[in-house]
Design a protein around this nucleic acid. Structure first.
Lengths: 152, 152
DNA sequence: TCTTTACCTCAACTGCGGTTGAGGTTGTAG
DNA sequence: CTACAACCTCAACCGCAGTTGAGGTAAAGA
């Protein structure tokens, strides 16, 4: 039972079979086939799926998750160090996002006290009103995907 | 200049004119018209747009953001207290999300040390492998939108 | 052996969150 | 008064992340 069928992967990962097909077409996961043309997955696919889910939870588009996964070796099985590198990249991303969200929450907390958004000096209000003036740079602080990337 | 044209709102909020039309069709914002059928927005719309953006950053679908906004009074202008109530709902949501993300980050940090995901006792690995067994409840910890709602 | 369940491909469809473009009107600056 | 920018509606289209269904094949249990 070293190899998993598509149904088994679906069950263990909680990802629908149709989504697994889809991910395979997009190159996010890989399988080989039995004599009867059925997919067989290496157990490693479960780790990849965990990474994919995590990325999606962070609002990262599949294309970009795919890029991250591309950095894993194709020739040999991913080593401990490979996964560690990938993990630390994700952790950094999470860290940045947590920082941004925490800042937003604190501003919002302040605003609850101040009658939120109604005052000229409310940080949220000011942000909103001056967004367009910030020019071509990354305008939306928490924007997911590309814009988070833009902050890197 | 108490009233803003659609272009002015777009510029001040950073939201495209087409998106403003779209939001109006969806009932997220409201305007009245000039004699020549052009939209005029109350400045309050900028606050609503700030809320909408915040929700989107949290991965909340527009339909649900709309529900939140529905709770603001239609008859009179929203009061300080109304905005405060809305703000504190959003802050709670942010809080929950920050908590979940922090937990995930900490697990991930642990995994970097342990050769991430490759060990049976890795929390991420275990979560992944037992997800399907959790039954019909909320399976994905950080899932946005509905599933976050399901955790409430 | 038979039958049922799981699997296969491919194309079409879904829902979300908008954007684009055509064809026409309004409003403001020179 | 004229030109030009900004506005209007409506329908069609986009990218993303899948799901659904038709029509057929494979494998496991009774």
């Amino acid at each position: 039972m070293a190899e998993l069928s598509v149904g088994e992967v679906a069950e263990r990962s909680g990802v629908a079979v149709s989504a697994l097909h889809f991910y395979e077409r997009k190159g996010l996961i890989r399988s080989h086939r039995t004599g009867g043309n059925q997919r067989r997955f290496d157990r490693e696919v479960l780790r990849r799926l965990a990474i994919i889910r995590m990325g999606q939870d962070l609002g990262v588009p599949l294309a970009e998750i795919s890029e991250q996964l591309e950095m894993l070796p194709h020739d040999r099985a991913a080593s401990k160090a490979d996964w560690a590198k990938l993990s630390s990249r994700w952790r950094d991303r999470l860290d940045r996002r947590i920082t941004l969200m925490t800042r937003l929450r604190d501003e919002l907390t302040g605003c609850i006290g101040c009658g939120c958004l109604s005052l000229r000096n409310c940080p949220l209000y000011n942000r909103e009103d001056s967004l367009a003036a910030e020019g071509a740079g990354p305008r939306r602080l928490l924007r997911s995907g590309r814009d988070v990337k833009a902050l890197e």
